[in-house]
Every structure is written in structure tokens, then in C-alpha cells.
């Protein structure tokens, strides 16, 4: 295909859409709306993933030690933990430091602590884990391994919080897939339908094109352009609507973020590809007859 043909076919695609303008507008509108629903879900997921990532940064193990350990026993526990592959950083917090931290946290009410005769807080290690090991399952085995070391009283890592959060994220991802599937299938159907109408309305033209020596590619290209264009426009409209919703939602939910530019571009590209695929569905029968 040369430049003359490419520009001609581009014009033909827009000519067809213009000719059946009402059908084109309705199908783009319906598609924009369903893509908007998908985009809302994707944005919620995206935000949860970001939140999850950020909470992973804070993911630490708190290793509480038995009272009355000797320095040697504490050193042995320290060396036992630091040797572990998953451990990135290890900070020791003595009984006194823990008490001071606690006092600082209580602020004005710290007078209450004066009543205590002994320091009830244990000494502890704060264990940072390497990023690749920040999975619930890994943390669990790590915690139980550390828990079996001599002198360790208890290991804590916010298990419940992490599990609940990741199960919510999984549920949302599941909903995303279902909504995505429905939206993509219905968009494919809508595009296939408009392109099918365009093919039918151009039946005579197609016959004549074949008669004067048009290749199948020449005949089908405008329909692919039409589908891809409608998919792309619907994606842009749904993103614009999403950003309006986002503007309102940001006040209600602080910290809400919009799609990053690269994710928005991927969303549009996927919709363009989906549009071309919808055209292919409409042309499949035609192509099977003609190319055989």
C-alpha cells in the first residue's frame, strides 16, 4: 500500500462514518459510557495497588525478646536474625528506648507511667525485609523461623491488616476482570455492529471496487480505520469523563490519584486495538467468503 492509497482510504473511512453519522455517534456514546465504568474500576484498583505498595514499604517485623537476657544471648539472637536471607536491616530497641518512645507517644498523659515501678516493655528488634520477600506467606514463615530462636518471646507483623487488605485488593481485581470482560465484549459487539452496517451500506461500492481491481486489503482497510478510530475516541471521552469524576472525588477521598500518563496511553491503545478487532469480527464473514 502506498501513500496515495493510505490517504485515500483514511478519507474513505471518515466519509463512511460521516455518512452514517447518527449510528457512529450513538455507538461511540454507548462505548464511552461502558468504558467509563471500566475506567472507574481500574482507577480504584490502581489506587489500591499504590496504597498496597506504599504499605509494603512500612512492612516490618517486630521481634520482642524475653526479659532478662544477657548481652551474649541478645547478640546470638541478633546474629541469628541478620544472617537470614530475607532480612534487609535490623534495629535494636532496648527496654529503655522502648519506654522512652512510649512516653513520647503518650505525651501529656505520660504522668501515668510514673506509677509503674518497673519497665513492662520488652527489648525488641525492628526487622526490615527485602522488597522481594514482602509477601504474606514469606513473612509468615520468616516470623515463625525467628519465633523459634532462643530468647525470642513474640514476633508481630500486622498479619491481619495485610491479609484483609490483600483479600480486598484481590476481590477488586476480580471485579475488574468481570467488568472488563463485559465492557470489552459489549464494545466489540457495538463496533462489529456499526462496521457491519457500514459494510452493508457499501455493498455496491465493494462490488465495484472488486471489479476495478481493488485488493481485499484496500477494501477492508477503511473499516479497520473506522473501528480503531471509534475505539480510540470512546477511550478519550471516557478518560475525560473520568477526570471530571476524579476532580470531584479527590475532595472526598484525600490522596486519590489519577492514572499515570503511561497507563492512560495504554488504556487508549488497548481500546484502539479493540476497535480494530471489532471490525475484524464484522469483516470475518466477508473475508472468509472473499479470501476463502
Amino acid at each position: 500500500m502506498n501513500w496515495n492509497q493510505a490517504t485515500y482510504l483514511m478519507r474513505e473511512a471518515f466519509r463512511t462514518m460521516n455518512r452514517q453519522r447518527a449510528v457512529t455517534i450513538v455507538s461511540v456514546a454507548i462505548m464511552s459510557l461502558s468504558l467509563l465504568i471500566l475506567a472507574v474500576f481500574l482507577m480504584i484498583t490502581d489506587n489500591m495497588m499504590l496504597l498496597m505498595d506504599r504499605s509494603k514499604d512500612e512492612m516490618k517485623l517486630y521481634v520482642y525478646l524475653d526479659d532478662g537476657l544477657t548481652n551474649e544471648q541478645m547478640n546470638a539472637a541478633y546474629n541469628g536474625i541478620i544472617r537470614m536471607e530475607a532480612v534487609d536491616e535490623l534495629v535494636f530497641i532496648s527496654k529503655d528506648e522502648a519506654f522512652a518512645e512510649f512516653r513520647a507517644q503518650l505525651g501529656e498523659e505520660s504522668e501515668l507511667l510514673e506509677a509503674l515501678e518497673t519497665n513492662p516493655l520488652p527489648a525488641s528488634f525492628r526487622v526490615s525485609v527485602k522488597d522481594v520477600y514482602k509477601e504474606t506467606a514469606t513473612l509468615e514463615t520468616l516470623a515463625s523461623t525467628i519465633g523459634r530462636l532462643d530468647g525470642v518471646a513474640e514476633v508481630n507483623y500486622g498479619k491481619e491488616f495485610i491479609e484483609r487488605f490483600s483479600s480486598i485488593t484481590h476481590a477488586v481485581l476480580y471485579v475488574d476482570m468481570v467488568v472488563g470482560l463485559i465492557v470489552i465484549l459489549s464494545s466489540l459487539f457495538i463496533i462489529a455492529n456499526t462496521v457491519h452496517l457500514a459494510v452493508v451500506s457499501r455493498k455496491e461500492t465493494i462490488e465495484i471496487l472488486k471489479l476495478v481491481g481493488a485488493t481485499n486489503r484496500f477494501i477492508t482497510t477503511p473499516f479497520f480505520i473506522e473501528g480503531a478510530f471509534q475505539g480510540g475516541i470512546a477511550a478519550l471521552i471516557s478518560l475525560a469523563a473520568l477526570s471530571a469524576i476524579f476532580g470531584a472525588g479527590r475532595n472526598a477521598v484525600p490522596g486519590l490519584v489519577f492514572f499515570s500518563p503511561d497507563k492512560a496511553v495504554i488504556f487508549v491503545l488497548v481500546c484502539i486495538a479493540m476497535g480494530a478487532l471489532g471490525s475484524l469480527a464484522a469483516l470475518r464473514r466477508y473475508l472468509r467468503i472473499e479470501i476463502g
Binding site: 500500500m1 502506498n2 496515495n4 492509497q5 485515500y8 465495484i208 471496487l209 476495478v212 481491481g213
Partner: peptide, 8 residues
């Protein structure tokens, strides 16, 4: 149209 298809 007959020349469009040949890419003239």
C-alpha cells in the same frame, strides 16, 4: 476510483 485502487 479505478486509479485509486492502483495507488496512482
Amino acid at each position: 476510483i479505478a486509479m485509486r485502487v492502483t495507488g496512482e
